[in-house]
Design a protein around this nucleic acid. Structure first.
Length: 543
RNA sequence: GGACCUGUGGCUUAGCCUGGAUAUAGCGUCGGGCUUCUAACCCGAAUGUCGGGGGUUCGAAUCCCCCCAGGUCCGCCA
């Protein structure tokens, strides 16, 4: 409704003014929709913008009210009819195939609170793409042959570590990795042993390859548990080593070697200066092995051939190499990735590092959030049995974590704060869940009622207008790749519902007033549910 | 030294790409509201040189330039 209304108003405005730049913007409090066209016309017509605006509105108001439902009531009625249906906000199916890569942390230790910013941005985007009707595949790119994993394999041997015993694999691997790095720092000559391992892996040495594979698999087992707790899902785990084994990497390096931009010294590199990069982009070491960047090119060529739109979620530390990759794909005439970058999460005492062991793991955060949520549920709903409370607490914990992370724009670096991460009030996931649970509670008590799509009063209209915007928000998230817009939208919808809830009695209203408010509550509940699920948050029916 | 991102009431934060009406919300503070649909809530108040300085414009938090502060990167690591 809202989307088609925007399009229709824009069409009328374009036809009337004869201009293309009628850009419709949010009208704020004074209007539902606004156009800046009058300001643009002011200069050439040498008239005050306000006067031009008045002439335009006088000229088109007839058409708008005749041809479109710009009058509030019929518009709201149409909105509500759509919003009470399951799946509200879903957009028409598209044929454009999308591949989205997120998380892709190195398998050398557990996911920490920095990694899951990637996970949550990525998974929320993925849910929005599905909601927007795109066929989508979500991938995790597993670095199973880099230096880090060589260090893990080396450390396991040297420390006689048992990473297959009791405990979560990713944490056991981290212990080995941290210890191994201490040894390497103490005696830098040991790095030769790491280099030797990497050369053997690239050469296809089966024994060394299997020494790498085990810990990688063990670490991924741990990741998958953590990701499931966060409601994040990958359709496919793609292994970096596959692009060496299948020959794609050497094939592309061969091709690049013949390009005019290639630089042959001891290494093979690309000169990307025409894209504004000062540094050469090194792809093959002097010992003949490929670097990460080369395998990444092979991986992205594969993605570009199999999908129409390629999206990566990457940390700010990948900005340079990500842009070099984009430039290289352009040079090769391949379908390159769009990249969503997010800035770092640090701790009050400094930056996080798996190598140094200075991080808060996602598992710690999930556990602590679950404990706090259980306390809270037990205090509020002592009459519920433990299983019921536990289900609610798990949903609340994941909601608090996901929302706390997705609500902030990715460009802003943040400092992890337990207090904020575990906040269950206002501007939090649980707050939005609570609004949904309240709506459920009303509807459950109401029993059957006939839908009534009338609307009256500022409170009801404000709610209906907000509901109307949901599909547009989904569309905006996938075109602008900004999942935080959905987070903010859901919170604002919950805010407006909160005010409505306190101002307008529903169950106590009589006759058609009761029916229309119940219909509005149902539309709100359904919209909140769809929004929450698209955020990867459980739409709890009771809290 | 160079590149990118960020800087908005005491704290956290939206708006910036695409300039337009009194700059968004939360926390905290202060004052109200549970015999009434779940108070994880609601209503009201106070709190702002939109980091600083120039410029463009009828109009700048938003665009351009310079400076300051924080983060990230500049490896034959990933």
């Amino acid at each position: 409704m809202y989307i088609s209304l925007c399009e229709q108003v824009a069409k009328v405005l374009k036809e009337y003014t004869g201009r293309e730049d009628v850009l419709l913007v949010d009208g704020g409090e004074h209007a539902d929709l606004a156009s800046t066209v009058a300001f643009a016309m002011a200069k050439e017509k040498r008239m005050a913008p306000a006067q031009i605006a008045k002439e335009i509105t006088d000229g088109i108001s007839d058409r708008l009210s005749k041809e479109l439902s710009v009058r509030t009531e019929p518009y709201c009625a149409n909105v509500l009819k759509a919003a009470v249906k399951p799946g509200y906000g879903s957009l028409p199916n598209k044929s454009e195939r999308v591949v989205l890569e997120h998380t892709s942390a190195n398998p050398n230790g557990p996911l920490h609170v920095g990694h899951i910013r990637n996970t949550i941005i990525g998974d929320t985007l993925a849910r929005c793409f599905r909601k927007a009707g795109y066929p989508l595949e979500v991938e995790y790119y597993v670095n199973d042959m880099g230096r880090q994993i060589a260090i893990v394999a080396w450390g396991i041997d040297r420390q006689h570590a048992d990473v297959y015993g009791e405990g979560k694999g990713d944490h056991l691997i981290a212990d080995v990795y941290i210890e191994a790095n201490k040894h390497l720092t103490a005696d830098p000559s040991l790095t030769e042993e790491i280099d030797a391992l990497m050369q053997k892996v690239e050469a296809g040495d089966e024994e060394i390859i299997s020494r790498f594979k085990g810990p990688v698999r063990r670490c991924l087992e741990g990741f998958k548990e953590t990701l499931a707790e966060l409601h994040a899902h990958h359709d496919r785990f793609v292994y970096e080593s596959d692009f060496v084994r299948n020959g794609d990497t050497s094939k592309i390096l061969g091709h690049i070697g013949h390009m005019p931009e290639s630089v042959h010294e001891e290494t093979l590199a690309l000169d990307l200066s025409k894209y504004g990069f000062e540094k050469k982009y090194i792809l093959r070491r002097s010992d003949g092995t490929s670097v990460y960047a080369a395998r990444d090119i092979a991986f992205h060529i594969w993605k570009g051939h199999n999908f129409d739109r390629v999206i990566d979620v990457l940390g700010a530390d990948h900005k340079l190499i990500g842009r070099q990759l984009q430039a290289t794909m352009d040079l090769l005439g391949e379908n390159g990735p769009e990249i969503v970058f997010f800035e770092f999460v640090s701790l009050p005492e400094g930056s996080m590092s798996t190598r140094r062991g200075t991080f808060i793991s996602a598992d710690e955060l999930i556990e602590e959030a679950g404990r706090r949520a259980m306390e809270e549920v037990t205090a509020r709903r002592p009459e519920l049995d433990e299983d019921a409370r536990r289900i609610i607490a798990k949903g609340v914990a994941a909601a608090a974590i996901r929302y706390d992370i997705v609500k902030t724009i990715p460009e802003k670096s943040t400092v992890f704060d337990w207090k904020e991460a575990l906040d269950f009030e206002k501007q939090s996931g649980p707050y939005i869940q609570y609004a949904h649970a309240r709506a459920c509670s009303i509807l459950e008590k109401a029993g059957d009622f006939p839908y009534c799509y009338e609307i009256e009063g500022d409170g009801e209209i404000a709610l209906a207008k907000k509901i109307a915007r949901f599909p547009k928000v989904i569309d905006q998230v996938v075109t602008e790749l900004k999942p935080h817009l959905l987070a903010i939208y859901a919170r604002e919808l919950a805010d407006i519902f909160g005010s409505f809830y306190h101002a307008e009695p529903v169950l106590k209203a009589q006759g058609s007033v009761r029916d229309r408010r119940l219909t509005l509550v149902e539309a709100t509940r359904n919209t909140l549910k769809e929004a929450l699920e698209t955020l990867g948050i459980d739409a709890l029916r009771a809290m």
